[in-house]
Design a protein around this nucleic acid. Sequence first.
DNA 1: TCCTTATTGCAAATAATTTGCATTAAGTAT
DNA 2: ATACTTAATGCAAATTATTTGCAATAAGGA
Lengths: 153, 153
Amino acid sequence: MQIDESIELKFAQQLRKHRLRLTRARKEIFQKLYETNKPLSIQDIASITNGVHFVSVYRSVDLMQKAGIVKQVPQGFKNLFELSDLFRPHHHHATCKICAASKEIHDARIESLMNTLTKEAGLLPTEHHFELYGICQNCLSAVEDSKPIQRED
Amino acid sequence: MQIDESIELKFAQQLRKHRLRLTRARKEIFQKLYETNKPLSIQDIASITNGVHFVSVYRSVDLMQKAGIVKQVPQGFKNLFELSDLFRPHHHHATCKICAASKEIHDARIESLMNTLTKEAGLLPTEHHFELYGICQNCLSAVEDSKPIQRED
DNA sequence: TCCTTATTGCAAATAATTTGCATTAAGTAT
DNA sequence: ATACTTAATGCAAATTATTTGCAATAAGGA
């Protein structure tokens, strides 16, 4: 997939703004996040990225995060990353607890409520994490809610 | 702090319902979560808990989580735990990005919106994670937003 | 009190993340 | 284009976090 010209430019500018260099590794990471278009773990990124050492992925994702290029998406117990709102429309995720399939949610109601609540709590809003979980149609049949928890043995 | 009788009973029942035994370690963990009354990491719990090996904390928190006694609160990049809604009113957190002070939010608007959105996404709602971040009054003065990111060197 | 088996503690294995350092390569100036 | 400065990379190794195996212990029911 070819990245849009203006997106690429913005990427370069954002790096520069934070005195970060536009390296092959970072281009590669950005490209993969862009075309995959869903939250990925560091490991995920390292595995699909071409010739970029996983340590560099850690370091670059961290810096790109601080530079506002990438944002963290804590999903359940995993820390995932995707491109920030600078590069794609702000959204949230609804994820199936069972099959982990995840769907994007775009809804203005969320944002306004978030801001209101954050301010009401006496904070200057910077960000919010918002993840919905449920069970999708496909998986519903396999679940019995009242059953005691499963052990692995 | 002494735990309410009915709370303790419910705790025991919930364990039993899931065929989990009421052990000293679990009482201790429950007690600490109860009196601390804020999200704690596994490490936190292990350190304030009296004579409970950290491996047991991992295991018991995991089981108590599956049994609905404890719930996970992914906060930023940390996985924290607190008692589930069975034992304290459902709420969310507004956390200062800088000093990490965290304030509880109780607001019915959130819940209804969550449920609506989850259903709209085609999922049967099970849970949601919802964390607000901002900068509190105390910390506000120390921040200059447009400054390039800080490196540690 | 006895019996069954979940739970614990400990040691050790794995996995995840971070750090130090020499080498490479951006980005700027010449 | 070439040289220069220093950020960024790769690799090895250190930390840190989490999980697993197993023998000893202790819940909880008979």
